[in-house]
């Protein structure tokens, strides 16, 4: 299969289950919502060292937010259930509570599983906090120097998907970056998906573990590192001098698949040799994104054995 001369490898991206929350930050204007969101999603590229993966999902217009103000929606993912509330609490506490004019709402109201976020944060109010139940939902009001910080008591917990990916194999570093940027631009604002790495792009694709250092959880993906083409077991086709990866986390399989379809399509431009994806032979994660299937329009999750319920 090729798209505009770019070969789509017959392989699949392998992803694993994560736990996710959607945090809606509203503020007086888009600027302050974004300030809080930027801080909240800072240093949240990979669970390997950041303990969570987070990024801005999209901007929200005033009529899309609970309090009628401009907002930003953030998705945050962790590997396990227990750490999700911890990560959300520490990040909301340090980056939203502190930010002028913001309020903070759950973006997954339909989720059956709930995590307590406003509830533990309420004690910052030192006994002066108050709660309100509006439309059956409880909010906490924390008095702060500026006025009042409003936060929803509980947030929905989703069973998300992490580690969706594709690799752009290009003739030059410039061509790789142009293609990756085009892909990121095309995927921007797609609901249910985030690209947690800087600018949405990873240059340091990794493999599991290390050949040399026992303590390393991950180390450089030498098979795709062009400088090692001669001294390692390379996966690089001839003519490829640079590879960039797009990593996607999402609330469900379909959201990631749709984003990959659009992102890959956008990445198929001159100077790109092929698109491939990272997998571990199907051993690591239950979610398999077959590139050719996706690019031919099939974005539904195929039933697999061992997938989480």
């Amino acid at each position: 299969m090729d798209i505009r001369g770019v070969q789509i490898d017959d392989t699949f991206a392998e992803a694993f289950g994560m736990r996710g929350a959607r945090i809606i930050i509203t503020a007086k204007n888009q600027k302050w919502a974004r300030e809080a969101a930027n801080k909240m999603t800072g240093f949240a590229t990979s669970v390997i060292a950041c303990k969570c993966e987070a990024a801005i999902e999209r901007e929200l217009a005033p009529d899309q937010t609970p309090d009628g103000r401009p907002g930003i929606s953030v998705l945050l993912f962790t590997m396990d259930s227990d750490s999700l509330p911890k990560r959300v609490i520490e990040r909301v506490g340090q980056t939203v509570l502190t930010c002028p004019t913001t309020a903070c709402f759950d973006g997954l109201p339909g989720a059956a599983e709930r995590i307590a976020i406003g509830k533990p944060l309420r004690t910052f109010g030192d006994g002066f906090q108050g709660s309100k139940v509006i439309d059956g939902v409880r909010y906490w009001r924390l008095p702060v120097m500026e006025g009042e910080f409003l936060i929803q008591e509980s947030f929905g917990k989703a069973r998300g998907v992490g580690g969706g990916n594709f690799l752009i194999l290009a003739e030059s570093a410039d061509a790789a970056l142009d293609a990756a940027e085009a892909a990121v631009d095309a995927m921007a604002g797609m609901p249910g998906v985030i690209l947690p790495f800087p600018g949405g792009i990873v240059r340091s694709g990794s493999k599991v573990g290390s050949m040399r250092y026992k303590t390393m959880i991950a180390s450089t993906n030498d098979a795709f590192a062009p400088t090692l083409r001669a001294i390692t077991k390379t996966s690089l086709p001839d003519g490829v001098n640079s590879v960039l990866e797009i990593v996607l986390d999402g609330l469900d399989f379909r959201s990631i698949a749709m984003a990959m379809q659009i992102g890959i399509d956008a990445a198929c431009r001159p100077g790109v040799h092929s698109i491939t994806a990272g997998n571990y032979g199907g051993k690591l994660g239950p979610f398999h994104f077959y590139l050719r299937k996706i690019m031919s329009g099939d974005v539904e999750d195929a039933p697999k054995e061992g997938a989480p319920a």
Partner: peptide, 14 residues
């Protein structure tokens, strides 16, 4: 004080 109570927006909109 005189301020914009965030819960009021929520309530009235609802």
């Amino acid at each position: 004080c005189t301020y914009r109570p965030p819960h009021v927006s929520l309530m009235l909109l609802s």
